[in-house]
Design a protein around this nucleic acid. Structure first.
Ligand SMILES: [Mn+2]
Ligand SMILES: [Mn+2]
Ligand SMILES: [Mn+2]
Ligand SMILES: [Mn+2]
Lengths: 145, 145
DNA sequence: CGCCAAATGTAGCCACGTCTACACTTTTGT
DNA sequence: ACAAAAGTGTAGACGTGGCTACATTTGGCG
C-alpha cells in the first residue's frame, strides 16, 4: 500500500498518474466501507459486521480489520458485539462517495455502456475520478437532459 | 491483496463489483509495468531498472520486486545487471494496455474532462474498464468522428 | 588498466488486506 | 432458563508493495 513516506519529491511528470492512482487506491477501501455502512444503516437501522462482510464479499475478520481502520481514521465508531456507526466525517465521506458512484454509473450508461457492466466497473473506477473529472461528468450529463 | 483463495462461491450480487475491483487491482501493477517497459524499449532500445523505477515513481528495489513478479508470471525476462525485456505474452499485454489507456483518455476528453486531469485519472481508471465498457467507449468515440 | 560513480542486487522492515481457526458473547427458541 | 445457533473478537499466516541500508557489479574515464 502507499506507505507514502513522501516519494513525490522529485517525481517526473510521467510518474504523477501512478502516484495519484496509488493514493486513490489507499482510500478506496475506506470509501467503499463507509458507503456500505451508510447504506446498511439506512436500510436496516444498523450496520452489523456480518452484513458488511457478506455484502463486501469478504470474511468477517477482514471486515473487522477494515472497521478497525475506519475507527482509527476517525470515520466510524463501535462497541464490542454491537453495530458500526459513522462519525460526522464518515457520513460526509459516504455522501460524497455515493454521489460520485451514481455520477460515474450514469456517465458510463450515457456513453453507451450496458447497465450491468456500468455498475460493476464503476465500483473500481469511482475511486480514480478526480473532482475535475467528476465536474466534467456532471456537466456532460446535464447537457444531455 | 486479493489472495483470492476463492471467495466468490456464494457472494451476493451486491459484492460482485467489489470482487471485480479487487481482481482488477491485482493485475494493475503488471499492466502498468509491462506498458512502461514496452515504452522504454521503444524509446531507448532497452528498459533499465533505474529508468523503470524513476518513471513509475518508486525506488529501485520496489521496481526490482515488480520485475521479479513479472518474470514469475511469465511476462518478462532479464539477466542480472542487464535490461528487462518482455515475453510474447508481455508484449501482448502491453499492446492491449496501451490501447485501453489511450481509449480511456480519449473518452474522458470527449466528454469534457481537461486533458491534464484525463491523463492522470486514466492511469487508475484504465484498470477497471472491462471489455464491454471499452467497446462502448470505442463506439462512442467513433460516432463522434 | 584501474578506479570511481552509477546501476543493480539483496536483506530486512513495515503496513495492508485477505484468509482460516478458534475463543468468546449474544440472541434465539423450546 | 438453558442449550444451540449466530455473531463477533482475535491470533496468526501469507502475499504484496512500499521503503532504507548496504553489498556487489558494470561501465566509463583518466
Ligand atoms: Mn468502489
Ligand atoms: Mn461505490
Ligand atoms: Mn495505470
Ligand atoms: Mn496506463
Amino acid at each position: 500500500m502507499p506507505q507514502d513516506t513522501h516519494g513525490d519529491h522529485e517525481a517526473p511528470a510521467r510518474a504523477e498518474g501512478f502516484n495519484h492512482a496509488r493514493t486513490a487506491q489507499s482510500v478506496a477501501l475506506l470509501e467503499d466501507y463507509t458507503e456500505m455502512i451508510d447504506d446498511l444503516i439506512h436500510e436496516h437501522g444498523e450496520a452489523r459486521l456480518t452484513d458488511i462482510a457478506r455484502l463486501m464479499g469478504v470474511t468477517h475478520p477482514t471486515a473487522a480489520k477494515a472497521v478497525a481502520r475506519l475507527k482509527r481514521e476517525g470515520l466510524a465508531v463501535s462497541r464490542p458485539y454491537r453495530g458500526v456507526f459513522l462519525t460526522e466525517i464518515g457520513v460526509a465521506m459516504a455522501a460524497r462517495v455515493r454521489l460520485r458512484h451514481r455520477v460515474v454509473v450514469d456517465l458510463l450508461v450515457a456513453v453507451g455502456v450496458p447497465a450491468e457492466a456500468a455498475e460493476i466497473d464503476a465500483e473500481g473506477i469511482e475511486h480514480h475520478v478526480s473532482d475535475a473529472t467528476l465536474g466534467a461528468f456532471e456537466a456532460f450529463l446535464k447537457a444531455r437532459g
